[in-house]
Amino acid sequence: YFGSLVYAVEQRLSEAGYVLILGDSHDEPTSERRVTDSLLDRQVDGMILAPAAGSEESTIPEIMRSGTPLVLIDRMLDIPCDQVGPENEQSAYELTAHLLDAGHERIAIVRGIEGISSTTERFAGYARALADRGIDVDPRLILEGRSNVEVAETEVRRLLTGSDRPSALVSMNNSMTIGSLKAVRGLGLSIPDDLAFVCYDDFEWSDLFEPRLTAAAQDVQTIGRTAADLLIGRIEGRDDAPRSISVPTTFTHRNSCGCAAATR
C-alpha cells in the first residue's frame, strides 16, 4: 500500500517540478522525530507525513512551529493542517455487515497499530456493525496484528487452534492479510470452507489466486495525488482554511467470504 502511495505522490510532485525525499519512521515516534528533524535541518519546501502514534504531541508541533507546509496522509488527526486519507469506519462496517448478512456471528478482527486513527476508525466500523445486529464485541475475537505480517500470523494461528474458533475473520490491512492467509494455510484450513475472510485493502493480483479476496479497495492514486496537490498549493502560497479529505473505498465482492461473487 505505502509503496503505491509514495509512487502516486512522487508522480504528482515530479509533474510540478519538485523532487521527493523519502524517509521511513517505521511507525516509531522516535524515528519519526529523527527523520523530520533531519528534513527540517535541510529546509525542505514541505512535508507529507503519515503520522505515527503520538505524532501530534511532538513531531507535528515542531514541524508547524518551523512554518514548513505540512500535509498528513493516510491517518487523520484533530489538528489544523491539510490532510487526506481513505474512508475507514464505513468501509469496515460494510465488510463486517457483509459477513453478518451471510449468517456469521462469531467474527474475529485483526486490527493494526494501536494509537493511530485508521486502526481506531476501522475497529469502530467493525464494532458498530456488530452492535447494529445486537451482537456484543467479544474481546477474545480481537487480535492485535500491529500491521505486521509475522505478528498477524502468530495471532491468527493462536485463535484458530483454540477450542472455539470463529466462523469468519476480517483483516484491516494488507500486511495483516498476508499474515492471516499464511496462518490459515499453515494450519491446513481452507477459505472460505473453514473460515470466511474479508479484508480492508486490496491487491492488484487479488483476482489471480484462490481464494479471491472480498475487499475494501483504497483509491491509492487519488489519495497520493491529492496529498501532493494540497502540499504544492501551500508551498505556492495558498492560505485558505485547512482541508480534510476522506477518499471513498470500493467494495469488491469475490469468493473469500463464501457467497456468490458479485460487485456492488
Rank of each mutant, 00 (worst) to 15 (best):
P166S: 14
S117D: 01
L143S: 05
P166M: 14
T120G: 01
V170P: 01
M172I: 03
N148G: 08
R133P: 00
A152D: 06
I113K: 13
N174F: 02
E155I: 10
V149G: 08
D132S: 15
S190P: 00
V184D: 07
L143N: 00
G125V: 05
R140I: 03
P166F: 08
S117P: 01
L169R: 10
S180D: 05
G162H: 07
T177N: 11
A124P: 00
V170K: 03
G145H: 05
L189S: 07
G112F: 02
G179Q: 07
V156I: 12
A129F: 03
A124D: 10
L169T: 09
L159I: 13
L189N: 04
R146H: 09
F123K: 02
G125S: 12
S163G: 14
G162D: 08
E121N: 00
L189Y: 03
V137C: 12
A152K: 06
L187P: 00
V170E: 01
R122P: 01
R111I: 03
R158A: 12
S117M: 01
L159H: 04
D164S: 15
I135A: 13
V184R: 01
L160T: 11
S167V: 08
A129Y: 03
N148K: 14
T119V: 01
V170I: 10
S118D: 01
I116L: 04
A183C: 09
Y126N: 03
S175E: 09
G134L: 12
V151G: 07
L181S: 06
G179N: 09
S175F: 06
A183I: 07
L143R: 09
S118H: 00
G115C: 04
D138G: 11
T161P: 01
E144H: 13
G115K: 05
G115P: 01
E150G: 15
R133A: 13
A127C: 07
S117V: 00
G145S: 11
L160H: 08
L130S: 10
T119C: 03
